[in-house]
C-alpha cells in the first residue's frame, strides 16, 4: 500500500465526514430553538456537500495517480528481472 493511496483514503474520509455534517444540518431543519435561519442552513449544507464531493473526487484522482506511480516503479524491476 503506497502512501499516496493512504492519503487518498484519508481525503475520501474527510470528504465523507463533510457530507455527514451536511446531513446533520439537514436533519436538524425542523428544529425550532435554533438561531440558524433556513436560508443560511441550506447554504451551509450546499457548501459542505460540494466540498465533500470535491474532496472525494480529488481522493480518486490521487488514488489513480499513486496507482500509476506504483506501476512505473514495478516496470523497471520487471525489466531488470527479464535482463537477468
Amino acid at each position: 500500500m503506497t502512501n499516496g493511496k493512504n492519503r487518498s483514503y484519508l481525503l475520501g474520509i474527510v470528504g465523507a465526514y463533510l457530507i455527514y455534517l451536511a446531513y446533520q444540518l439537514f436533519e436538524g431543519r425542523a428544529e425550532t430553538d435554533t438561531t440558524m435561519t433556513p436560508a443560511v442552513r441550506y447554504v451551509f449544507i450546499a457548501l459542505f456537500v460540494i466540498a465533500g464531493i470535491a474532496l472525494a473526487v480529488y481522493a480518486v484522482i490521487v488514488w489513480k495517480q499513486s496507482g500509476k506511480e506504483e506501476e512505473k516503479e514495478e516496470k523497471p524491476k520487471q525489466d531488470e528481472t527479464a535482463l537477468k
Binding site: 474527510v14 463533510l18 455534517l21 444540518l25 436538524g28 440558524m36 451551509f44 466540498a51 474532496l55
Partner: peptide, 12 residues
C-alpha cells in the same frame, strides 16, 4: 448548528 459548521470549516 453553527458549531458543526465551524468544526467542518476548520477541518476543511
Amino acid at each position: 448548528n453553527y458549531q458543526r459548521v465551524v468544526k467542518g470549516f476548520v477541518l476543511l
